[in-house]
């Protein structure tokens, strides 16, 4: 497999994952702001823009945090070169450049997804069409993932596809947690006001975790078990531990295929030490914010090592 193609596949799946997670984050934010006063709503949109690394860029263009306006900025604004439509476009461009490494099913899912979203996002986002667009982004990403799962050979290409997916997902989960980390500190769990459960609910929704969490915890809400669930539960597909166990597996497949390990395998082991065997108490002791910072940095180092080891660029 060509290094350039491995690179293209890896990023195609990163972009698809990022687009989907961004849509999820906006949907949760939108829901939250509907039930809150203006101050809380503004705060929520600010926190979403911070999570996405777009706060400065947004504030350079706008003075207020009207929901549809924020969503328009994140989804399609020309003033935001990293908008969701651009992610979908990048995913499709990568798919096109790696067309011969993908099955027709995957290519068509990505291509049709791009066509659908291009049409949906051709006009400014309004409150009335926001949910349709957000749902469509998640659906199209899901279709591409499903086609990947159902039609691709389990070979090198697949390993890079999955690595891209889980590396991006772990990054997104960590960023969402980091922006809200203060909500999850144990001291707050004693407050237990309605406002706080709403905030927790919002964190869970941002990761589509609310149902799974409630099902496992029979409705009990507390910061400790939410953090435990989102970071350490290996049954939940967006938890850090889940993403890393899949990446470990994908990297092992690559090592086996190539008959050798690289620096990324070392980086993976280093990341494992930070994550496995830890309890949520250990993490709180270290400091949640500190833990997430280190995690994100380690995740980035891992991505760099993968690119280096597998000759993504000349």
């Amino acid at each position: 497999m060509l290094g350039r193609v491995a690179h293209g596949i890896f990023w195609m799946y990163r972009y698809l994952e990022r687009a989907e997670n961004t849509a999820r984050l906006l949907a949760a934010g939108q829901r939250m702001t509907l039930t809150r006063g203006k101050d809380m709503a503004d705060q929520e949109w600010r926190s979403i823009l911070t999570t996405l690394g777009l706060r400065q860029a947004y504030e350079a263009c706008h003075d207020d945090y009207e929901g549809a306006q924020v969503c328009d900025f994140v989804l399609r604004s020309k003033n935001n070169p990293e908008n969701v439509m651009a992610m979908v476009e990048s995913a499709r461009t990568n798919a096109r450049a790696c067309r011969s490494a993908l099955t027709a099913e995957v290519w068509e899912a990505v291509n049709e997804g791009w066509m659908t979203l291009r049409d949906l996002l051709a006009r400014p986002v309004r409150d009335s069409n926001l949910n349709t667009s957000l749902a469509a982004i998640r659906r199209e990403s899901t279709l591409a993932r499903g086609a990947t799962h159902g039609s691709m050979l389990r070979n090198e290409t697949y390993s890079f596809a999955r690595l891209g997916t889980f590396l991006e997902r772990a990054d997104n989960t960590a960023r969402i947690l980091d922006v809200k980390y203060y909500l999850l500190l144990p001291s707050l769990s004693y407050v237990g006001t309605p406002l706080d459960t709403g905030q927790w609910d919002n964190v869970l929704r941002s990761l589509s975790a609310e149902r799974a969490y409630r099902w496992l915890n029979s409705g009990r809400m507390d910061a400790r078990s939410i953090a435990d669930f989102l970071i350490l539960d290996d049954r939940f597909p967006r938890s850090l531990v889940f993403c890393y166990s899949r990446m470990r597996q994908n990297l092992a497949e690559l090592a086996q295929l190539h008959g050798a390990e690289g620096t990324c395998h070392e980086a993976m082991r280093a990341a494992d030490i930070r994550l496995t065997g830890k309890t949520v108490e250990d993490i709180f002791e270290q400091g949640l914010h500190q833990f997430l910072l280190e995690f994100t940095a380690g995740n980035q180092a891992l991505a760099g090592a993968i690119a280096e080891d597998y000759r993504f660029v000349a």
Binding site: M1, L2, G3, A6, E156, H258, Y310, R311, A314
Partner: peptide
């Protein structure tokens, strides 16, 4: 950009 001449042969940059 995937290709290079090495050892008198045309070669492509693969992941290995």
């Amino acid at each position: 950009s995937d290709l290079r001449v090495l050892d008198g042969k045309l070669q492509m940059r693969t992941t290995v």
